[in-house]
C-alpha cells in the first residue's frame, strides 16, 4: 500500500515538474488566432453551402419519397382490403341466395313429384275400378245369359240321350220341366 502511495506521489511530482516546464495555456497565445478564425470561416462556410445546397435537399427528398411511398402503399392496401371485403360480402350473399334457391328447387320438385304421383295413382285407381266394374258387369251378364242356354243345352242333351237309349222321342215339355226342376235344385 505504501509502495503504491509512493509511486503515485512520485508520478504526480514528475507531472507537476513537467507542468512547470511549459506553463500556461496554448489557447491563450494569440499568434495564430486570426489564422484559426480565417480557416474556420473558410472551411465552415464551405461545409454550410454544401450541406444547404446539396446534402439536405437530397436527404429531405429521400425521406419524402419514402414517406410518400409508405403512405401510397398503405392507401393502396386499404383500398384493396375494402375491395376484398366487398367481394367477400357479394360472395356470401350469393352463397346464401344459392342455398335458398337450392332449397326452393328441392321443395318444388318434391311437391311436383308428389302431385304427379297422386294424380297417377288416382288415374290408375279409377281405371282399375272401371275394369273391375266392367268385369263384374260381364260376369253378371254372363250369368244371366248362361242359364237359359244351359237349360236348352241340357234339354237337348237329355232328349238326345233318351233318344239314343230308348229310341224314341220323349215329350219335350216334360223334359223341360224336369231340367228346370233339377236346375232349381242346383241353384239352391
Amino acid at each position: 500500500m505504501n509502495k503504491t502511495l509512493v509511486f503515485i506521489t512520485t508520478g504526480l511530482l514528475s507531472v507537476n515538474n513537467l507542468f512547470a516546464a511549459e506553463a500556461g495555456m496554448p489557447q491563450l497565445d494569440p499568434t495564430y488566432w486570426i489564422s484559426q478564425v480565417f480557416w474556420l470561416a473558410i472551411i465552415f462556410s464551405s461545409i454550410y453551402f454544401l450541406v444547404a445546397k446539396m446534402f439536405i435537399p437530397k436527404i429531405k427528398g429521400n425521406l419524402d419519397t419514402r414517406e410518400n411511398k409508405i403512405r401510397k402503399d398503405i392507401e393502396e392496401a386499404n383500398l384493396l382490403k375494402e375491395e376484398a371485403d366487398k367481394k367477400l360480402k357479394i360472395y356470401n350473399a350469393s352463397i346464401i341466395e344459392a342455398k335458398a334457391n337450392a332449397k326452393k328447387i328441392i321443395s318444388d320438385s318434391r311437391k311436383k313429384l308428389n302431385e304427379d304421383l297422386s294424380i297417377k295413382k288416382k288415374q290408375i285407381e279409377s281405371e282399375i275400378q272401371k275394369e273391375i266394374e266392367n268385369a263384374e258387369k260381364e260376369i253378371q251378364r254372363f250369368k244371366i245369359n248362361s242359364t237359359p242356354k244351359m237349360i236348352s243345352i241340357s234339354e237337348e242333351i237329355v232328349s238326345n240321350v233318351i233318344k239314343d237309349i230308348f229310341g224314341e222321342d220323349l215329350n219335350k215339355s216334360s223334359i223341360k220341366a224336369t231340367v228346370t226342376e233339377i236346375n232349381k235344385g242346383y241353384k239352391n
Binding site: V15, L18, F19, A21, E22, G24, M25, P26, Q27, D29, T31, Y32, I34, S35, Q36, F38, W39, I43
Partner: peptide, 28 residues
C-alpha cells in the same frame, strides 16, 4: 506536458496578408 497537445504550429509556408499571419496550422 498535458497542455502540449493544444499548441498550434504552422504547417507549410507562412501566409501573410497585410502583416496578418494566416498560415495553415495543425488546427486548420
Amino acid at each position: 506536458n498535458p497542455m502540449h497537445q493544444f499548441s498550434v504550429y504552422k504547417i507549410g509556408p507562412e501566409i501573410k496578408i497585410n502583416g496578418v499571419d494566416l498560415s495553415f496550422t495543425n488546427a486548420s
